[in-house]
Amino acid sequence: MAQHEGGPSARDLEDGRLLKELEAIHRTRHETLLHGSDEALVTHTQRMNELEHEYVRRHPGRAQTAARTRSGARARTGED
């Protein structure tokens, strides 16, 4: 299993662990943004991107809520 500064490579994580890592990083995002050093924020962003890209790679057909798409959000507010 490949290991780097932010933890095991996202590609090496089994699905359950990948989801746990995503939950944890999203939970800590706001605190890192407000109070982390510039270096901590960069590292956090890189790890978050790695985990999110891996999730999307594994689940390209994941269910999407219409309101969470650009056209669905615009329809809800009446914007074009």
Rank of each mutant, 00 (worst) to 15 (best):
R68Q: 14
T43W: 02
M1P: 06
R70P: 04
E14R: 13
H35A: 08
I25Y: 07
P60R: 04
M1L: 12
E50S: 11
D12V: 07
P8R: 15
D80V: 09
Q3P: 01
T28Y: 00
A2I: 11
S71M: 07
N49V: 15
A10S: 14
L18Y: 06
L34E: 05
L18Q: 08
H26L: 11
A67P: 00
A75G: 11
H59C: 10
A63L: 14
R70D: 06
G72Y: 07
A63V: 12
G78Q: 05
R70W: 10
L33M: 10
A40D: 11
D38S: 07
D80W: 15
H30P: 00
R17K: 15
L18D: 09
E14F: 01
R29K: 12
V56Q: 01
K20H: 05
E79C: 01
V42L: 13
A67W: 10
E5K: 10
G78Y: 03
G61C: 03
R27I: 03
R17Y: 01
S71R: 15
A24W: 05
R27D: 12
A24H: 08
L51S: 01
E5R: 15
G6A: 11
S37W: 03
T69M: 09
L34Y: 01
N49S: 09
Q3Y: 12
T65M: 13
M48P: 00
A24I: 03
S9Y: 06
A66F: 09
L51E: 02
T45N: 02
